[in-house]
């Protein structure tokens, strides 16, 4: 797939944000907050970084693989997959509706191309990504394995089982990213269950940690992923601490946990869409 320039990526991100809001609005259900916050990451990954093939095969031999652990941010992933050509854009209209492949949380059961494992129950995706990365190593497959986790998800014990495992087994074809927006359902992470110091914690477990301080700035996100890639192959996995703002791109949604899992009204949608260029055409 051709790599998009920063400007093209930015335009794509605007359209993806429109998709997210329209999908969630249509069914009045879903998780717009962190989907909007992670839009630069997903767009940079799929349209600039990932070596992937939209003629989907579950095995993905020779390709880079991506695993989403915090499955509730499915809207951003679905939009990016559809706009990468994995399935028809029109299918986004079926998000969270009955008889759809576009399930509330990502799933393989209905055979939606691009999805390799179900996620939604938190804490599991990193383990799966490590397993996939090790399987690639056995086969001498040079593909990179990517995983995205939420920051609230860092409260799950399984994350730390996986964190301990990967450096011990020298899984150095893996880039795990944490969406560090400091928000979770019940409020700021600092209030619910403080995560700090996340960087020190991951470093203590033996990971190479990089920080992408401007996680909603496209050039910074691409630069962070490039930097992460350069650290691969030296015996240690890489952790990318991606500082984002929940709800980024829509002024009344940004920076609050309020929009974690609620849909905009008709008026709110109109207001939000007015802030986002329809760069590639709505589905």
């Amino acid at each position: 797939m051709e790599k998009l320039t920063t400007e093209q990526l930015q335009k794509t991100a605007s359209q993806v944000r429109r998709d997210i809001l329209r999908m969630v609005h249509e069914v009045q259900s879903g998780h717009p907050g962190a989907s909007l916050g992670c839009t630069e990451f997903f767009v940079a990954l799929y349209f600039n970084q990932l070596n992937h093939n939209s003629e989907f095969s579950m095995e993905g031999k020779g390709e880079d693989l991506f695993f989403l652990s915090n499955g509730h941010i499915s809207p951003v992933w679905y939009s990016v997959l559809a706009r990468s050509g994995y399935f028809d854009l029109e299918e986004l209209k079926t998000f969270r509706k009955i008889n759809s492949r576009v399930q509330g949380h990502p799933a393989t059961e209905e055979g939606l191309p691009g999805i390799r494992i179900a996620s939604g129950s938190l804490g599991q995706g990193l383990s799966v990504a490590i397993g996939a990365a090790q399987a690639k190593k056995i086969d001498g497959d040079k593909g990179i394995v990517y995983a995205l986790m939420g920051d609230g998800e860092q409260q799950e014990g399984q994350i730390w089982e996986a964190a301990m495992y990967a450096p011990h087994h020298k899984v150095d074809n893996l880039i795990a990213t944490i969406d560090f927006n400091r928000q979770q359902i019940d409020g700021p992470t600092a209030v619910v269950m403080d995560l700090d110091d996340l960087k020190a914690k991951w470093e203590a477990f033996g990971w190479q940690v990089i920080e992408t301080v401007k996680g909603n700035d496209m050039a910074s996100v691409v630069e962070g992923l490039e930097k992460a890639k350069a650290l691969l192959g030296n015996g240690k996995p890489v952790l990318n601490l991606l500082h984002t703002e929940m709800g980024f791109g829509v002024d009344f949604m940004v920076g609050t946990h309020k929009w974690h899992g609620i849909a905009p009204s008709d008026e709110q949608l109109e207001n939000a869409l007015g802030q986002l260029e329809e760069s590639l055409g709505d589905y």
């Binding site: 095995e59 799966v128 490590i130 495992y165």
Partner: peptide, 9 residues
Amino acid sequence: GLAAGMTIN
């Protein structure tokens, strides 16, 4: 989780 991931290829 590791086992599930290993099945993928």
